[in-house]
Design a protein around this nucleic acid. Structure first.
Lengths: 157, 157
DNA sequence: TATAAATTGATTGACATCTAACAATTTGTT
DNA sequence: AACAAATTGTTAGATGTCAATCAATTTATA
């Protein structure tokens, strides 16, 4: 349904670019609600899953700062997410020899186990959701999003 | 930059549809950070602006429930946003004759004033951000987003 | 009409997020 | 080597968000 109909506005939004932005943001709102519902079944939030997922696929050892940069959240947020994941025994903050300031974050076996269980189901849902698009269309969406991100990060707001 | 490079993953994500989803979500993350920075200049959060904006363009009188439905947030969230907007004197909860359960939410003159001041500047920023796309491309993005939203709302997760 | 069901707004507790500040530590510069 | 600057993780306080629950009220049904 169109944004204008969903919002039931008197004067529909006449601004195509504003409408474009609203559409993207609103879509993520809807996806996020669905995502939270899904992850809750496994005792996780979306943010917590994102951390577990990143840790599973990471390259080198990652600090909390590294995690924050990759996931585009502040160090403070990472601290609070890790507190919860650690208390559930899903991750561990390892002391780093030679640098007493940082911690290397790793999945515990339980953490790895959980991601490995949830990820394929999550992925199936994503496939169901986006099965209507061809590979070419997916690439096109990705291109659009990369362009917007690139511009958002460089253009002064 | 590509999601795989941004995340610096060992094994890049091989799943085109997952990558598509990550791209959309991540784009909104970035936009949201920029948006919050922008609205803070006017003493607002993005959620607060969204409420003011919706109230400016609404058709009939809206209750808090109405607002929640349009903005895709729960009644509890609306309550807390309105508490803050009301304490700043930007909106008012009007008693409704004939139905003592509901409230009609309206902009105060100050609220209207503020939206009218912020909106055109916000809109200019959006134009700057999306000026690289033709109208046709915008329509294409909108179409993609509407399709995803439609499917997300109907497909069981 | 009387009772059951649904709706509305508020509240509570949990979580994610931000900014700002802080202490500890590391890195860079003179 | 000594001092200044930057980085790291944490904390506190603010805000938004949700689910669950509640009381008040309205609507629907028996």
């Amino acid at each position: 349904m169109s944004i204008n109909r969903e919002l039931e506005l008197e004067r529909p939004i006449q601004d195509l670019r504003h409408e474009t932005l609203l559409n993207i943001v609103r879509t993520v709102s809807v996806l996020s609600i669905k995502g939270e519902m899904f992850f809750r079944r496994y005792g996780l939030t979306e943010a917590q899953f994102n951390v577990l997922f990143a840790l599973k696929y990471k390259k080198k050892k990652w600090t909390q700062s590294d995690l924050g940069k990759r996931l585009v959240v502040t160090r403070a947020s990472i601290t609070s997410i890790l507190d919860r994941l650690e208390s559930k025994g899903l991750v561990i903050r390892n002391i780093v020899e030679g640098n007493r300031r940082i911690r290397h974050i790793e999945l515990t076996p339980e953490g790895l186990n959980l991601v490995q269980k949830v990820e394929p189901i999550y992925r199936r849902n994503i496939h169901k959701l986006l099965s209507c698009f061809s590979d070419k269309e997916c690439l096109e969406i990705i291109k659009y999003m990369e362009t917007i991100r690139e511009r958002a990060m460089t253009i002064p707001y």
